[in-house]
Design a protein around this nucleic acid. Structure first.
Length: 295
DNA sequence: GCCCAGGAGAAGG
DNA sequence: CCTTCTCATGGG
């Protein structure tokens, strides 16, 4: 992987197992949007960027970033130092269903997102659909957040920090159209503000096990098993977490023959067959069932 | 109009 | 412990 800088952009060569559509449209993140040319414009970790990828040359271009930005943020955010080729081979071995899912979503990577943002995002996600989740998050940023910079003729906003949201009322959040979830956000923000953001950050460290992080996340209002698994997987590097939503239930039933409401058996099946990469396996399955027309 | 969405909290068994 | 009901909103 070689990194060069060219008039306001970073060019990364030798990026394998990578596809922007797979990464940004597999339901793990909500603040990137696809342009007609296939590039993605969005924001993460307080920065803005435009990303394009040339698959024939295995070349990733990040506009609005220099080498320092790449080393400080984007290399880690995009999980570029992980060998997904090896992970895919391990998951696909002896599993024709997973093999199909992997070849369909071969460029998926698990982004390393901010914990507070991911906590908010997936509380909003409950009993909601992805287009509306994106609208809610954008609206929350514009209503309660701060301007984080202008890029590509667009003004971007950060999400409100825990203290700001803790001081808000349900009426303050009314413009965001969050429905009954507004109360959950405020309640959780108060808890995080009281505990300190460090206690949330600590859950993402090596010293906190996957199970411990999961249990701790269940303590926030609006966070149940599915949402806790998403937060642990998408922002805390707990790659064995296996979130089970309506889509995963469908795919586990249709392709693996597990009874559709038997969540315990699904979780056990994932632990037995996908092991410490259960969360990555889940993303291949989720992308497969939500995007493949002939399944 | 209708069903549904990356579900969880509350109430009642 | 498990099952059922309810929740606000708008996409398709």
């Amino acid at each position: 992987m070689t990194v060069t800088e060219k008039n306001g952009a970073v060019i990364v060569e030798g990026v394998k197992d990578f596809d922007l559509d797979h990464i940004f449209d597999c339901g793990q993140c909500f603040r990137w949007e696809r342009r007609d040319d296939g590039a993605y414009l969005g924001t993460a970790r307080g920065r803005q960027a435009l990303m394009s990828y040339d698959s024939s040359g295995q070349e990733l271009t990040i506009y609005g970033a220099d080498k320092d930005d790449f080393e400080e943020v984007w290399r880690d955010y995009l999980d570029l130092d992980r060998d997904y080729g090896a992970i895919k081979a391990e998951l696909a071995a002896g599993d024709p269903v997973m093999s199909r899912a992997i070849s369909f979503g071969s460029g998926i990577r698990i982004l390393k997102q901010e914990k507070w943002e991911t906590l908010l995002s997936f509380i909003i996600s409950q009993n909601n659909n992805i287009p509306r989740i994106k609208k809610c998050i954008e609206s929350l940023a514009q209503t309660m957040g701060r301007p984080s910079g202008e890029f590509m003729s667009r003004q971007f906003y950060s999400l409100p920090d825990p203290e700001r949201l803790a001081g808000a009322s349900v009426d303050d959040l009314a413009p965001c159209r969050l429905g009954y979830r507004a109360r959950y956000l405020i309640d959780t923000a108060r808890q995080v503000a009281e505990e300190g953001l460090e206690s949330l950050e600590r859950l993402g460290t090596e010293e906190v096990s996957s199970q411990e992080a999961f249990d701790a996340l269940l303590g926030y209002c609006g966070v149940g098993p599915k949402v806790a698994n998403c937060i642990a997987l998408f922002s805390m590097n707990k790659l064995d977490r296996f979130p089970i939503d309506v889509w995963v239930r469908k795919v586990m039933h249709r392709l693996y023959g597990i009874e559709e409401n038997d969540m315990k058996r699904m979780a056990a099946f994932a632990a037995d067959n996908f092991g410490h990469y259960g969360g990555i396996a889940q993303q291949y399955l989720f992308y497969y069932i939500t995007h493949c027309k002939e399944i």
